[in-house]
Structures are given as C-alpha cells and as structure tokens.
Design a protein around this nucleic acid. Sequence first.
DNA 1: TAGATTGTTAATCGATTAACAATC
DNA 2: TAGATTGTTAATCGATTAACAATC
Lengths: 206, 206
Amino acid sequence: MKDKKIPEATISRLCIYLRELSELAKNNIITISSSELGERININDAQIRRDLGYFGQFGVTGSGYNIIELKAALKKILGKDRVLNVVVVGAGHLGTALMSYPRFKQPGLNIVAAFDTSKEKIGRQISNIDILDIKELTREIKRRKVAMGIIAVPTENAQEVVDTIVEAGVNCILNFAPAALNVPENVNLKSVDLCQEIETLSYFCI
Amino acid sequence: MKDKKIPEATISRLCIYLRELSELAKNNIITISSSELGERININDAQIRRDLGYFGQFGVTGSGYNIIELKAALKKILGKDRVLNVVVVGAGHLGTALMSYPRFKQPGLNIVAAFDTSKEKIGRQISNIDILDIKELTREIKRRKVAMGIIAVPTENAQEVVDTIVEAGVNCILNFAPAALNVPENVNLKSVDLCQEIETLSYFCI
DNA sequence: TAGATTGTTAATCGATTAACAATC
DNA sequence: TAGATTGTTAATCGATTAACAATC
C-alpha cells in the first residue's frame, strides 16, 4: 500500500468522483461544489472534501472546484497518467467477461495478454487480447514488466498461479477464485468471492 | 435488512465460520474454541464470539463450541434450512461463470432459470440450468415465487431489468452491471463492480 | 461588501479488539 | 479444585459527518 493512512474506500470513491467529473466535463459547466457533486453521486459533501484533502488542496474557497482541473488532478492521483501492465490468468467465462467489458480496456491499463491451459483457446483472441499458453506466464511477466495479475482460474489452481506470478515479480493481485490464498507480506492481494456475495445477500432476503 | 443492528460484515463472516466448521466436521474433532477457529481463518477470537453473540449463546464456558451443533446453528441463522428461489438474468460470460461455479449450486439456493434475449441461447442449458426467453421473466418470477435476482446483463439494460423484476416482486438484487441503479426504498440492492475493483487496486500497484 | 464554499478540527458513529468476571 | 474459555462490558480504532473559521 502506498500510504497506510489513506483508506481503500477513499480510493474507490476517487474513481467515482473522476467518472462523474468526466460526465460533467462533457457539458459546459466550469465549476462544481462538493455539495453539488455529492448530491449527484449520493456521497456526503464533507466526505468528498476529506477524501480530496488527503492529496492536497484543489478547490477555491467560495466557488468550488474547477471541473477540468480536478479531473486532471484525480487522473494523476489514480495513476491514470501512467500505464500499468496487467495479465489475466484464466480465459474461462469470468476471464472472458472481464476482458469483454469496455471499461476494462481503459488507457492506463495495458492488458499484456491472457493465459490458459486449453489447447483450443491458446493462440486465439478474446476482445483483441491474445491468449497465450500458461507456460509462457513467467517469461511474459518478466519481459513486459507486468505489475498486476488478475486470477480467474479454477479454485484448485489458484494458489499455484499466485505462487508463479509472485515469483515472477508481480506484487499486486486481484483474485476471483473462491479460495483463501497465501502470499508474502509485501504482496497486495485482494480477493473477490462472487459466491460469497450471493450467500451473504441471501441472508437479507426476507 | 432483517435487523439493522447486525453488520453485513458479520453475516459475511458467519459464512466463513460455517465453511470452516464443515471442514472440521469431516475430521473427528468434537469441539473447537473461538481462538482455535480464529487462528485457522485469520479472524480475531473476540470478533467470532461477538458475531455469534448477535444470535444467541452457542458455546460452553471452559470448553468451546460443539462443532456439529454450531454448524447446525449457523445453517439455521444463514437460512440454509430454507430454499431460496433465484433467477439469473443475462446468460453471457459472467452469468455463465456464476452458474458454472460448483458452489453456486448449493442446497438452499434454487436456481429457477436463467434469462436472455439471444435466440441462440434460449432453450439451451448452462450447467443444467434452463435458459429462457427474457419475455418470460415476470411470469416465471411470479409463478416460482422468486426472492432474489442476479443481474448479469450489459450496463445499458440493467435498469430496465431491475425495474421488471422489482415490479414482479423481487426485493433482493445482486447487480454485476457497472451501473448506478435506482430501486425503491424497500428493495435490497447490492452492486459489485468488477472493473471498479481493478481500478481501485491499480492505485496500490507501486 | 455579502454570499458561498473550502479545508480542517471536533463530534459522532460503528466496528473491532482487549480484558475479565462468570462458570463449566 | 485448577485450567480453560465463554459472553459481554469497556477500550480502542478508524471512518464518516457536522460545524465553522478562513477567505475567495
């Protein structure tokens, strides 16, 4: 983590602010106040000011934030001015779903390749992304200086894949396999378990 | 929400406790203490006792929890003794991925059907689940008394689908479309935005 | 100037964890 | 009985929100 003081929730909200500002920029509005912005996205205005406050001062007392400027500042903060090389491991349904989302293909995220074991898939493309043999994984990560790995393989193979990509130098992993994975201290692992989301929600159904 | 006092995080952890207890039940251990259980799943022992405390007293002072009994109690709490009828709307890659997870097909979740607009998909099955014409959605929800809807359609159709299933009587929705959806007060909507997870994580990559 | 809105401090809220009396 | 562990109260921590002086 870049800075222990900044909550992950703040970063997640910065993404939302940026998206809304991009919408606003399309119209001809110049400035927006934290309360107006907050109303649009259902977030408390003090929350917005506090989130921005972690990174500096971007507003003008009395008139609010310049939309273009704040948008640029947020892009910088979120690292969207740099390009991050990413691999997707597993070209099954979930991997394919991710690669097919238009928003997945944004400047800033460079999807180097997807990897799979299936002979039928290797050599093909999904949404213009090459599917390579998983045997090439380590080599490609090193060659392309990959910084993030997205794990979309079956549960039973997830730990093995994580070990491989960590060994190859990736220290940022988003895992969709419903497995508790072990990684070294310095590796930033986030797991999203879709089935668990369903189980949790089902409690709240009546 | 059943009870405003109980955090969603607690319910999510109860699922984890249940899964671990099921593992433990396979061996021949009779009881387990909150600290032993916590060590296995990396959760503070006081947290476990507090979470259980929301629902009653399940342990024996001095010796811990009876694994079989606690497992049964958690199943009851999480509603796994009842059957919840569920529809999956959208039989694209994400919908297919969900339906293909073995854990998705658990007793307690009855997947009534999947729905799609594509002529090629309608009439087929995915992982033994029938794909029906989305025109049948309202009728099937009413006929089968569906309690939960899982939205895995493209962003642009998500609001329309939500309106339809809410109108048909569903008040518990898990949405995977990256869209901010509007639902009535009484509807329990949880959105999971896979791309946003990636964006947020990418901040923490160096 | 008067009105509006920031940036930040203080207050609140909620969730996690420590501590411990009760007790098996 | 002595040791262990619960259930729960009190303490801590962190995040959200209110309030307001500073100031454009």
